[in-house]
């Protein structure tokens, strides 16, 4: 490509040397401090973003997802029906398990 003693190469080196000698470079401590600050800022931004995402997700879930339905009260208070004679009789059963007891006080005698 080009020789080591290439005049163009020498010109490039000369220009870079002039730039290097005139450059005011900060001490390492300053770079490290800026680096730490930048790292802290970045972490804070990431944490804040994560909190926002979680908070927004939680709020959306609470709003959109259906929860347990609240107990529905009756439309009106049911009135207690008046007692009827039929209520005291036991329901008819085709296969009674217990033989009926003949009690004079509760059932009439057979005719």
């Amino acid at each position: 490509m080009s020789e080591p003693n290439d005049p163009l190469r020498s010109l490039f080196r000369e220009a870079a040397d002039r730039g290097q000698t005139q450059a005011g470079l900060p001490p390492f401590a300053q770079i490290a401090e800026r680096g730490r600050r930048s790292q802290r800022r970045r972490r804070a931004v990431v944490t804040l973003a994560a909190c926002l995402v979680l908070g927004a997700g939680g709020a959306a879930a609470v709003t959109l997802l259906p929860g347990d339905p609240a107990p529905v009260p009756p439309a009106n208070t049911p009135s207690r029906p008046a007692p009827s004679p039929m209520d005291t009789a036991p329901p008819p059963s085709s296969t009674p398990t217990n033989p009926p007891t003949h009690n004079a006080s509760t059932s009439p005698p057979p005719r």
Binding site: G19, A23, L25, R34, S38, R42
Partner: peptide, 24 residues
């Protein structure tokens, strides 16, 4: 960077910023 950019002030700035990023 000075030779690449043609501006010493800018070369110093971007090299420092690159080192700050490299720290991370």
């Amino acid at each position: 960077l000075y030779v690449m950019l043609g501006d010493l002030h800018e070369a110093q700035d971007v090299v420092q910023e690159a080192f700050v990023r490299a720290w991370r």
